[in-house]
Simulated scan of single mutants.
Amino acid sequence: MKRITAYATTSGIALPEQPGVPARDACGPQPAAVVRDLRDRAGRSPHGLTFGAADLVVVTGLPGSGKSTLMRRAVRGARVDSQDTRDRWDTRLAGFLPYAVYRPLVRLAHYAGLRRALRSGAGVVVHDCGTQAWVRRWLAREARRRGGTLHLLLLDVTVGTALDGQRERGRGVSRYAFLRHRKAAGHLLRSVEKGNLPEGCGSAILMDRTAADVLNRIDFAAGVATAA
């Protein structure tokens, strides 16, 4: 099984070694951010991604790109997915209230759950819709505080694939919301392709749908901490 580690160089596509440092020293000079492009490999991409024990991973992409599906299938460890939070609230309220009414409560519950997960100190994989840049800034600060690294896992799919994904799950977003997501995701993708990562992000991995389908494990190595 092909695997890629985010904390040690083990193959031509692995991220460079980023040895752990105490949180109090994490504000010094930091290594340059790393971008790994796993797109257009016809399925010959890693089957696993392993990160440091104190790292945080953000999975981002268009609505319908497969973020939740990937997280549910591959994450071994803590994951915080806003879709899971919405599903729980939908079970209780969707029968007699439109989603717009309780959307603020869903968001509040999601961020409260994320805060609890971060307080554990363990590695966490977080779903990010791409339009809330402040969330990535929050996670970057938390990663540095704990002496870890924030990693970005970006799913790059076509608009048609994303819309098909929304239809398959039986739930879409409005045209206005999708255009907002598309603009934000496009801007992020272009920046990452140029090597310009969001502030505080130590690495980024670009994946297309084929690479995402091959990936079956995202985990955190016990006893290993990395610094952004």
Results as ranks from 00 to 15, higher is better:
A109F: 05
V106L: 09
R119K: 14
P104H: 02
V106S: 10
R107C: 10
P98C: 07
L108D: 13
R119T: 11
V126Y: 00
P104D: 05
V124M: 03
A117R: 13
V106N: 07
L118G: 03
S120H: 15
R103E: 10
A112D: 14
V126N: 01
R115W: 11
L105E: 07
Q132H: 13
G113T: 11
L114K: 04
Y99G: 00
V126D: 01
D128Y: 03
G95H: 07
V126H: 05
R107L: 13
G113P: 00
R107V: 06
G121P: 13
G121K: 02
Y99L: 13
P104S: 03
D128P: 03
L118C: 06
S120I: 07
T131K: 11
R103P: 05
T131M: 11
R107E: 09
Y111V: 14
L108F: 07
V106A: 12
T131R: 10
A100M: 06
R116C: 12
A117V: 10
G121Q: 01
G123V: 05
F96I: 06
G130R: 00
V106K: 08
G95K: 07
S120N: 11
V126L: 03
A117D: 11
G113W: 02
G123R: 07
G95W: 02
S120G: 15
F96C: 10
G123S: 09
G123N: 07
V124G: 03
L97D: 09
G95R: 01
Y102P: 02
G113D: 14
P104T: 03
L114C: 06
T131I: 15
D128E: 12
G113A: 14
Y111F: 14
V125P: 04
P98W: 06
G121L: 05
C129Q: 08
V101G: 03
V124N: 01
C129I: 14
A112E: 15
Y111D: 09
Y99P: 00
Y102Q: 09
V125R: 00
P104N: 06
D128M: 02
G130V: 00
H127C: 03
R116L: 13
G95I: 00
L108V: 07
P104K: 01
C129E: 08
P104Q: 03
H127F: 12
V126R: 00
L118F: 04
A122D: 15
G130L: 00
R116G: 12
C129M: 08
L118A: 00
A109S: 14
L97A: 14
T131N: 04
S120Q: 15
R116S: 15
A109K: 01
V125Q: 01
V124F: 01
Y99F: 13
L105R: 10
L97R: 06
L105D: 10
A100I: 09
P98L: 04
F96H: 14
Q132Y: 13
Y111E: 15
V125E: 03
V124C: 12
Y102N: 07
L114W: 04
